[in-house]
Design a protein around this nucleic acid. Sequence first.
DNA 1: GTCTATATTCCGATAGAC
DNA 2: GTCTATCGGAATATAGAC
Lengths: 192, 192
Amino acid sequence: MDTRAAIIHIGDTLLRERGYNAFSFTDISRELDIKNASVHYHFPTKASLGVAIISEYEKAFEDLRKESAGAPALAKLRTFLKVYIAARGQNKICLVGSLATDLYTVDEAMQQALGRLVRQILSWLTAILEEGRSEGMFFFSGSARTKALLVITNMMAALQLTRVTGKKDFQEIKGAIIADLIGSGKRIKQKN
Amino acid sequence: MDTRAAIIHIGDTLLRERGYNAFSFTDISRELDIKNASVHYHFPTKASLGVAIISEYEKAFEDLRKESAGAPALAKLRTFLKVYIAARGQNKICLVGSLATDLYTVDEAMQQALGRLVRQILSWLTAILEEGRSEGMFFFSGSARTKALLVITNMMAALQLTRVTGKKDFQEIKGAIIADLIGSGKRIKQKN
DNA sequence: GTCTATATTCCGATAGAC
DNA sequence: GTCTATCGGAATATAGAC
């Protein structure tokens, strides 16, 4: 892996483990066994690294969307949820939650990049839910976008809350989201 | 207001606006027009202030629980949700979300205090939901504790996410939570 | 309780050699 | 691309006067 990519990867890890204002270029340089100044060669400012990290997520989500394009809505949903499951496995929170907390302490360029990422994620999940509903696979009332807001907020905060209450609660939340969407034989079909 | 209480109040504001690692004793002292060293007289360490802030929430939630003790479950739920509505009005996120993000950068004593607060909040909301269900006011399947996890995570992350997407989405989420719980004439009563 | 003054450490960032 | 060296600033925290 080239140094630039390694810096982004380590930066992403620190960002989601400890928060934007709790990691430094020196933390990254130590991990790579280089010097702080060398990190600045790849990313002149911390904000430029922040934007690069966010951009990686835009690419990654776009890849996931494309890869799962032909799959059934439920499979797409599981692909989406896997992002959060993977984070939970490493006790990291999601990038959006981490940066939203520190939002007013970061560069304008980072705030804008985060806005783009959030709109992209929300738009993808909304499409998955709408598709699942029209296929008769998912059941929910209200707009697909509102349901997407509910699912995303559940998963975002699940990563944060279960740092305190334990991994089992994350499984509970994840299971409840899916059960709620597919009905689980406990709910009648909604009129849309 | 005495200085100690004022410090706690300003600290809480900064914590929920900018995050634990983005405010300093000097920020607080400036706000009070005193010196950084004077803040240290009241709270020797930043962690001691952090614990004091968390303890204030324990008291505040306990007060809310007691005050609403005789009310119907729906009124109790609205009392609970008002905490988040008030935060959204000031564009602050919730304390639990803010500290969960920075959890591994704060003192052990703060982590433990946060654990107590989370258990307290979760226990209160679980009781509200269980009571509302047995009264026939709320409808949901699964355990009341799992439903409480879902509601809390929705509200926690709603404060964070809608910093990016806008206040209107917060209203959407809040409205959907209540509509989901009371059924809104769109759902049959669940078998519990 | 608040002050001045200061110790120590770290941070983001840059200049210039190699 | 990485290094040494360093700047300016800010953070947490403490000693001791008032």
